[in-house]
């Protein structure tokens, strides 16, 4: 499977949440032998990657094979954790399950990962974190990873 096709599976197969979760884990399993030899190999020219400025802060997002996406804010790393979680929309529409990012900063407020409904998950996360930081910066604690 090419890199592009892997991403397409991630992005477009999420007809249902369970499918999305299964697909993600499936891709991770597929990718793991490669990632052992080439750790954190980036998908070249992923159209979702960004390196820009938001509210005066530099945001840099990179989508990697196997789901280990990376985010830096003013060159400080924010460790990301991917969880499968229930979303209960405040507008009263039907709850749904999706894969989402949490981090030390948005620990109780998961941001949905790119899929057919939301193709800018990592950037949306970056913007949310900056809105939460205000004038402040991430500390080194924010780079400490953990699993769920």
């Amino acid at each position: 499977m090419t890199d592009m096709r892997r991403r397409d599976v991630l992005r477009y197969s999420a007809a249902g949440a369970v499918t999305a979760a299964t697909t993600l884990f499936g891709v991770q399993a597929l990718a793991s032998p490669n990632s052992a030899r080439e750790p954190e190999k980036a998908a070249p020219n992923d159209p979702r990657d960004f390196d820009e400025t938001y509210k005066g802060k530099k945001i840099k997002g990179k989508h990697n094979i196997g789901g280990k996406d990376e985010l830096h804010i003013n060159n400080q790393k924010l460790a990301l954790t991917v969880i499968s979680t229930l979303f209960v929309p405040e507008d009263g529409s039907e709850p749904y399950v999706a894969m989402a990012y949490i981090s030390a900063i948005n620990h109780y407020d998961p941001v949905e990962i790119d899929d057919s409904k939301n193709k800018g998950g990592l950037k949306k996360l970056a913007q949310k974190v900056i809105d939460m930081l205000g004038d402040l910066e991430l500390s080194n604690e924010a780079a400490q990873a953990h699993s769920h």
Binding site: L133, G134, L136, E137, L138, S139, E141, A142
Partner: peptide
């Protein structure tokens, strides 16, 4: 152990 670089509670 703040993940926000500050000594002040936010």
């Amino acid at each position: 152990r703040s993940s926000i670089a500050t000594n002040f509670l936010q």
